[in-house]
Amino acid sequence: MSRAVAALVVLLAAGLAAALGLAMLDLPEPAVRLPARVAAKLGDSGVDHPVTAVLLNFRAYDTLLEVAVLLLALVGVLALARPHAARAAAPAHPLLQTLARLVAPLMVLVAGYLLWIGAHAPGGAFQAGAVLAAAGVLLRLAGLLPAWAQPGLLLRGGLALGLLVFVAVAVAVLGQGSLLQYPPAAAGGLILLIEAGLTLSIGLTLAGLYLAGTEVEP
C-alpha cells in the first residue's frame, strides 16, 4: 500500500474521530432516563445490584445470546485445534507449580464469592467465570493441566450447562407471558440458579479458548 493511501486513511480516521467528538459535544439531553427506570423496577428484579438486574433480568436475552456466542466461538477454536496440540504440558518450575497449587483453590473460592455477592454488589457470573478461567490458565502455564484436543462428555456437559439452564428457565417461565420475565417472588432464586450455571460454563469456555488453541513449546 502506497504512502499516499496510508496518509489518506490516517487523515480520514482523524476526521472520523473529530466528527464523533463534535457530535458528542452537541448531543441533546436524553429523552428517556434509563437509570431512573432501572431504579424504579429494581425491587421486582430479585437482586439489589442494578448491573446484575439489567444483565440477568431486564435484558436477560442479551446475556442468553451472548453465552451462545461464547459457546460457538469455542466450537470454532476446537475445530481448528490440531491433534498434536494434545500433548501433556511440559513440566514447569517446581516453585510455579507449588504456587499454582496454592493459588488455584483460592481463585475458585474467590469465584464463588463473586458469584454470591453479585446479587448485592459488583460481581456476578462474568467476573466469577473470568476468575475460574484465569485459574485454569494458571494451572496450564504451570504444566498441571493438559491441553484440550477433544473434550470428553463430562467437559462438554459443563460447557453447555450454563446455556441449558438458562434456556430451561426461559422455557419454564414462558407461561408468564413474555420471554424471560421471571415472577418477582422467585426471581432472586432463578437468577442465582442461572448465574451458578453460567459461572461454571463461562469459566470452562474461557479457559477452553486458551487450553484448546495453545500448545506448549516442546
Binding site: 463473586l114 459488583p122 460481581g123 467476573q127 484465569a134 474461557l206 488453541g213 495453545t214
Partner: peptide, 23 residues
C-alpha cells in the same frame, strides 16, 4: 463508576487476552 466492568476487564481484557496474544 463501573467496578463490574473494571473487574471483568482486569481479568479478561488484560489477563486472558494477554495470555492468548503472548502465546
Amino acid at each position: 463508576g463501573a467496578p463490574d466492568i473494571a473487574l471483568a476487564e482486569a481479568a479478561i481484557g488484560a489477563g486472558l487476552t494477554g495470555a492468548l496474544l503472548l502465546d
